[in-house]
Write a protein that binds this DNA or RNA. Structure first.
Lengths: 236, 236
DNA sequence: AATATACTGTGTATTTTTTACACTAAGTAA
DNA sequence: TTACTTAGTGTAAAAAATACACAGTATATT
């Protein structure tokens, strides 16, 4: 990068990041919403998001926002679209870069219940079916994120982040069914999942159920990473 | 959208759009580069792109920039990623929203040779293999765009925009081979393409070749649009 | 101890899709 | 007429996706 002539104006941008954070709990898909504590849209429900600091990259900003609301770090986040309609923000031109993330609810010990920030009064997990009208264009942003996730899960196993560390195949299948909104065939589902080669069978069984306990599985991160190397390819 | 309390500050953002514009000519993939006429990076090669106006949406900005450089309107452009590293722009915090587009070279009568703008001295089609070092982080942006295109074309027929209106199957195959950087099997390729059901066979043949002329085909936009409805789906 | 309950875990046959592979036909140029 | 160059075509084999049903096992109940 070259030295800047001092004559050039200095730019100071204002833009935001919004995060669609998916969680899965009690058989339901949820997203994390905040109740805003600032104008505009004070007291409205909104996606977690905020203006980006001058000295943080987009990815870092997304991580920070997630951290402030959940206490979690190091979660994989995917930047999926940038929204920039002229009137999307009442205070002027504010474009927003949108990310989605998936985190496990239920048994995540690091997950804080309350936000570590003051632009949100509170943060709450809301089932997808009960989404209220959101501030700004956040409903649009959510819809796009969900569409992206639904699409992607059809050919890439991205949903593991939503499950507890140890899970049964039935739980995994149920998660898929909720995301895709359709019933799947048990045997074919298992065949497909095992074929991905990213599940590790544990010597352990489900506990606390009043019927035959299922085997537990773990998600093998190393093999998962390798899977992503060999990309889709056109036939010869 | 609610009325804004006058007490709130007014935001004025500065951000840019950069376009990776693919063309295909004489069997080669090219992209459109400009030679910059402004600081910073005056005289450097760069992706066509500029600061976005306060009153235009992202998509409109992308369209405008394409128009200013090529004289073309109504070209499909896909927003694929937003780049926001802290130091990517020497004048301060300027994030850039990146789009790619595909347009037909060779026989496109509306395609102007020279830019209709003054931030670029000239605009030139450069073969992908000869790309120079570009201004800002534009090499990174290009790489990501190309990766996206390569990936996407493996399962969606997005390359038609690059060909002349009437084309032979061999030309189409050649285009695929260049993008994917591998040889494809002629019979299998034809089978697959015909199966998409978006090609219309014309009662017309190639002209001016010194060997048996091939049938010409046209791309059927209506069927193409319909194809996109039925999305990828997980097996039952 | 017997029985009811509820979910686990498994295999095979069929269909569809993908892949591999090579020669004749048609037009042009000499 | 012949040589040259590309067009155009089919089939068999392999791989992947789909459809489909029942016995096994842990727990709870009586």
């Amino acid at each position: 990068m070259r030295a800047v002539e001092t004559i050039l104006p200095k730019f100071d941008s204002v833009f935001s990041i919004d995060c669609v954070i998916f969680g899965f709990d009690e058989g339901e898909l949820k997203i994390l919403l905040i109740e805003r504590n600032e104008e505009p849209f004070k007291d409205w429900w909104a996606l977690p998001g905020y203006l980006v600091e001058q000295d943080e990259s987009l990815d870092n900003g997304a991580e920070r926002i997630l951290y402030e609301l959940t206490g979690l770090r190091g979660i994989y986040m995917d930047q999926f679209y940038t929204f920039g309609d002229v009137n999307r923000h009442p205070q002027g031109r504010v474009i927003t870069v949108a990310y989605y993330a998936m985190i496990r609810l239920g048994g995540n010990k690091d997950l804080k219940p309350a936000p570590v920030t003051n632009y949100a009064k509170k943060a709450v997990w809301i089932p997808l079916n009960d989404l209220p009208t959101l501030a700004f264009d956040h409903n649009t942003i959510f819809n796009r994120a969900f569409e992206k996730v639904r699409n992607r899960i059809s050919y890439q196993p991205i949903a593991f982040e939503l499950l507890p560390e140890k899970f049964t195949l039935t739980q995994l299948q149920h998660l898929y069914e909720v995301i895709l909104n359709k019933k799947l065939d048990k045997r074919n589902f298992r065949k497909k999942m095992m074929n991905y080669g990213i599940l590790k069978e544990l010597d352990e069984k489900q506990k606390g159920v009043s019927y035959r306990a299922a085997k537990l599985y773990k998600f093998d991160k190393r093999k998962y990473a390798r899977l992503f190397q060999k990309e889709l390819s056109f036939s010869k």
